[in-house]
Write a protein that binds this DNA or RNA. Structure first.
Length: 731
DNA sequence: AGCACGCCGACT
DNA sequence: GTCGGCGTGCTC
């Protein structure tokens, strides 16, 4: 190989926490290498990196090694995506190599050849169609479900994996084997399926869609602010259909929990053969195939969760972020990006409209609309003329609660049980009881490694720490005084399920939380049961509040609605307001008005008043004014250096040194080091330094100077630390 | 991040 | 006498 000083080298970004590129030699170096993956020798290992640039070496020529292998003939990451990922590395002050590794699906981070893009599709053969027509499969069987599904058109195997677990066994049954045809290849396989027509749009919907349509072909940010049930999805589908008709791609981001088979089915019915899903439940190989299909422009619509924001879109036409206020769009570890913010960054770079939708927009997006950076589209009416639910506040001060429920709530539940209706009891604590305490001496079970109480789980008969996942058996006697009077205090979803089932034996109680839906498909079984319309009481956490349509629910009860207001976290009010509105949105339809009951110890809280009298818009106005007056986001910008270590002294000395080496900047205030909100977690002490500025450029400028110094601090070796730009929690 | 190198305590 | 603790330095 030519190693003369003038020879250009590849500047390779490697998946390491080192903020620089490494020089490698290769034959015929030119710009065609940029964005290609290469396997390279690195110390005693071999790594796969991405060529970020080509140019003159800035390391000693003798130290430059040659690459081992070029993995891509054509760039895998190119154009706008590469540009955006560079921007991400800069904005979040994260090494480019790690950013690239985050953006690539797992299988593409290695040296193995790229998976075949063509998906496997399953469709009915002629005998299969006859079998379907004759009802050859037993009604209600998995085989019958598979036949029915394929009767709608060909299906990708991956979609069936999600919707009909175990379908492969059914398809292989000897008597049924010939009913099915397998096809390798493009989505054209199902192009014969006819699109299901959508409902006619009302006036506001038509206006909103027209505004988005007019923006197709250039960048424009929209905030689609529509109450629950106002038909935001119809706007998405309408805009996507137009984009597809123009031969362009659409990217749709949804929170993890919202990407259910039902949503997928709805998209697929309306846009047959065009929708590919991208989410964490997919096998790695499948994710890689969808990603590659998008990169080749073959995927028309990519519907995915947070990480799908890194999907390549060579023919981009539109980006949608549904439930844009949802915290799940912010990655909470490693590279702490906000998929919602990145959607806007990409939209601008791609020159396509970006549609942020929510019934309860984030205050960030509302402020952006206020400042003219987003165009606000309002859908103030529930489609189909459904009435909004009425809301009652139940003051539990001085009340005698039974099983954690106020008498008025019990009456309300009882009357609906009698009428065989559906109700939903929301409680944001899973487990049986949030506390196990000793009646004799006041001791309570506390995690040894965190500053948090153990939650009692009765089903598993264990104490469970929700902060570090540690589990231990329930003690027989109080470890402090030996008394046997250990008593569960408080009511988690598990306990509510039990007590409601006892109180109302004639009606099924369905619990929906992380514990009860751990098994694959369990959530959908439970939601299907609820959607069947049969009378039941649904008990659950946050999971119940998000997105699922439960039109038969006539009563929604929120227990401990104020729990969030006790906390110092300045976003608690926003989250509570969103939660209340979202949960309330689950209740009622046109012919069955819904009732919402909020059980609280703070019935006079101003937030509740504003929210109940003026709805979310009034709350948001007030809260934004408060944020502005008190100098909080979105009117100032935050960055947070978090650090944790088992050794408190090492932790302090790192953050002290960090603070001392911070460059002075008139526009940026530093606060701390101070203890993190939960000061000890999983045996580690946690502290942080908060940066605050009304100017993003000032904040970015400081971080740009500070981060390299911070990385060079020797004290940093003994702690785990990270930077969070635009953190969701900052106190 | 890994991984090697290097200098000090308790073991076959 | 060695096995192994983790501090520190380096990786094109």
């Amino acid at each position: 190989l030519d190693k003369s000083p003038a020879a250009p080298v590849l500047k390779v970004a490697l998946p390491l926490p080192l903020d620089r590129l490494f020089d490698y030699a290769a034959p015929e170096i030119g710009r065609g290498w940029i964005g290609c993956r290469v396997s390279v020798p690195f110390g005693h290992r071999r790594l796969v990196g991405v060529v970020a640039a080509v140019g003159a070496a800035d390391s000693e020529p003798t130290r430059i090694k040659a690459i081992l292998q070029r993995l891509d003939a054509q760039p895998l990451i190119s154009g706008e995506l590469l540009q955006t990922l560079r921007w991400v590395a800069g904005y979040y002050h994260h090494p480019l190599g790690e950013v690239l590794a985050t953006a690539l699906p797992g299988p593409l981070r290695g040296t193995r050849p790229l998976p075949q893009v063509g998906e496997t599709w399953l469709l009915l053969s002629a005998t299969g169609r006859r079998a379907l027509a004759e009802g050859a499969a037993r009604r209600g069987s998995r085989l019958a479900a598979l036949l029915a599904r394929l009767g709608e058109g060909a299906q990708p195997a991956a979609a069936l994996d999600m919707e009909l677990p175990g379908w492969r066994d059914s398809a292989r049954l000897p008597r049924a084997r010939a009913w099915f045809d397998w096809r390798e290849g493009a989505m054209a396989a199902s192009a014969d399926a006819a699109a299901v027509a959508g409902p006619a749009l009302n006036e506001e919907q038509a206006a909103a869609l027209a505004a988005v349509s007019a923006a197709i072909g250039s960048y424009r940010g929209f905030l689609l602010d529509g109450v629950t049930g106002s038909g935001k999805t119809e706007i998405y589908l309408g805009a996507i259909a137009q984009v597809l008709a123009g031969g362009r791609q659409a990217l749709v981001l949804v929170p993890e929990i919202a990407l259910t088979p039902q949503l997928l089915r709805r998209f697929r019915e309306r846009l047959p053969g065009r929708v590919m899903a991208l989410h964490s439940a997919l096998a790695d190989g499948e994710r890689a195939r969808v990603w590659l299909a998008a990169a080749r422009g073959e995927a028309g619509v990519v519907l995915g969760t947070r990480s799908a924001v890194f999907t390549p879109l060579p023919n981009a036409g539109l980006i949608v972020v549904d439930e844009e206020h949802d915290a799940a769009f912010k990655q909470a570890d490693a590279l702490r990006y906000s998929a919602r913010d990145l959607a806007l960054v990409r939209g601008r770079a791609l020159a396509v409209p970006v549609l942020l939708g929510s019934a309860t927009p984030s205050l960030e997006s509302l402020a952006n609309a206020e400042a003219g950076r987003l165009q606000r589209l309002l859908l103030p009416r529930r489609a189909g003329a459904a009435r909004p639910p009425s809301v009652r506040v139940l003051d539990t001060r001085g009340q005698r609660l039974q099983d954690g429920l106020a008498p008025e709530l019990i009456d309300a539940l009882a009357s609906r049980v009698e009428r065989r209706e559906q109700m939903l009891v929301f409680r944001n604590r899973r487990g049986f009881a949030p506390l196990l305490a000793c009646r004799a001496c006041g001791w309570h079970a506390e995690c040894e490694r965190c500053d948090a109480a153990y939650t009692l789980h009765r089903q598993s008969r264990r104490l469970h720490c929700h902060h570090c996942d540690r589990e231990r058996p329930v003690p027989e006697a109080c470890p402090s005084c030996g008394s046997h009077e250990l008593k569960p205090l408080g009511h988690g979803t598990e306990r509510l399920e039990e007590s409601l089932a006892q109180r109302f034996p004639g009606i099924p109680v369905i619990r929906i939380d992380r514990d009860s839906t751990r098994r694959r498909g369990a959530l959908d079984e439970k939601l299907d049961a609820a959607r069947s319309g049969d009378a039941c009481i649904l008990v659950g956490t946050q999971m119940l509040a998000k997105g699922h349509d439960l039109p038969e629910v006539t009563l929604v009860a929120v227990l401990n609605a104020d729990a969030g207001l006790m906390r110092a976290d300045y976003r608690a009010a926003e989250r509570l307001a969103q939660l209340v509105i979202q949960v309330a949105g689950r209740a009622g339809r046109a012919d069955k008005p819904g009732q919402v009951m909020l059980q609280t110890l703070q019935p006079d809280h101003p937030l509740l008043h504003t929210l109940l009298s003026g709805g979310y818009p009034a709350f948001a106005r007030e809260e934004l004014a408060l944020r502005r007056a008190t100098g909080l986001p979105p009117y100032v910008h935050h960055a947070l250096v978090r650090a944790e270590a088992p050794d408190m002294v090492a932790l302090r000395s790192f953050l002290q040194a960090a603070r001392e080496c911070a460059p002075a900047s008139a526009g940026v205030q530093l606060h701390g080091p101070m203890p993190a909100p939960s000061e000890r977690r999983a045996g580690r002490w946690r502290m942080q330094i908060l940066l605050e500025s009304s100017s993003r450029p000032d904040l970015q400028g400081l971080l740009g100077e500070w981060m390299p110094r911070l990385r060079a601090l020797p004290q940093g070796r003994r702690v785990r630390w990270s930077l969070d730009v635009d953190p969701l929690e900052a106190d």
